[in-house]
């Protein structure tokens, strides 16, 4: 069954059409990558799905129901969570607190029970902490011990990315939208995060849509790839079909596609 269906989505900012009639679907248990040159409208799609922007036209259905017009926090309640391309962590809160805030929406106790620390509240708090360590454990021990109580402010860039992914996982979402999860990571860390994303699907049971510029990561884990250019979907399919599609090569390299070393001719890694 389709978990997410995006149909004829359109969004303009003034004269600029950032998303132009884009349709695609994501099935449960898939890893789908959205690629495209800078400014192609990849992040805009994430913002539309998560309710940050309202589409001008088109529909977004999650598990069969339209989610257009819902507030971002209501969309999280339904089961979609995201990370941000430019990291939006709670800087002065600790790693643990960051991963706890994203579980707050599941809290069933009222604020008064929280003040009184009723047994029901304590149980939920404990469960939230257990879930937080479970999600942080995806990234190995590095966020688990002394870093747990450090403010995010002192973490390295790569650790901040990991914290943000753990935070999104802890919301209890079924569908994760990861905006450039490997940005700012070195090749070794990128290889590691590739495996982690795969484990997030296999062990965590998440369905994943990711925006990425690093083609080796995309090639290794994507079940399907959607290519955007100037807000339009120009190709869709498995990685090898897509990167050899003349339209895609043209979008990345311009009209005069220079011939170079065979398989690497596809999209090159770019960085924002």
């Amino acid at each position: 069954m389709a978990m997410l269906e995006v149909e004829h989505l359109r969004k303009s900012f003034g004269g600029l059409t950032a998303t132009n009639d884009v349709s695609f679907r994501v099935d449960e248990g898939e890893i789908v990558s959205i690629i495209g040159p800078n400014g192609a409208g990849k992040s805009t799609i994430f913002n539309l799905i998560t309710g940050v922007y309202r589409p001008d036209a088109g529909d977004i259905r999650f598990e069969g129901r339209s989610i257009v017009g819902k507030k971002p926090n209501e969309i999280v309640d339904l089961g979609i969570a995201r990370t941000f391309q430019n990291l939006r962590l709670f800087m002065y809160l600790s790693v643990l607190e960051n991963v706890l805030v994203s579980q707050h929406h599941k809290m069933r106790s009222t604020w008064l029970s929280a003040v009184l620390r009723t047994p029901a509240y304590r149980r939920q708090e404990r469960a939230a902490r257990e879930l937080a360590s479970e999600k942080l454990a995806f990234f190995g021990p590095r966020l688990m011990s002394f870093r747990l109580n450090q403010p995010v402010l002192v973490l390295s860039y790569a650790n901040r990315r990991r914290t943000e992914m753990a935070r999104a996982m802890a919301t209890g979402a079924k569908l994760l939208l990861l905006d450039e999860p490997s940005a700012g990571m070195n090749p070794k860390e990128t290889a590691e995060i590739t495996q982690i994303i795969r484990r997030m699907r296999d062990e965590g049971g998440y369905t994943i849509v990711l925006v990425e510029h690093k083609m080796n990561l995309v090639g290794e884990i994507s079940d399907r790839v959607v290519v955007l250019d100037y807000g339009q979907k120009i190709a869709e399919g498995d990685y090898h079909t897509v990167v050899n599609d003349p339209k895609v090569v043209e979008a990345y390299l311009g009209k005069k596609a220079e011939t170079d070393e065979g398989a690497g001719a596809g999209p090159r890694e770019t960085r924002t």
């Binding site: 998560t50 507030k71 926090n73 999280v76 941000f84 707050h104 929406h105 599941k106």
Partner: peptide, 8 residues
């Protein structure tokens, strides 16, 4: 924005 995106 992040708080809202995390369900708050």
């Amino acid at each position: 924005v992040a708080a809202e995106a995390m369900g708050v």
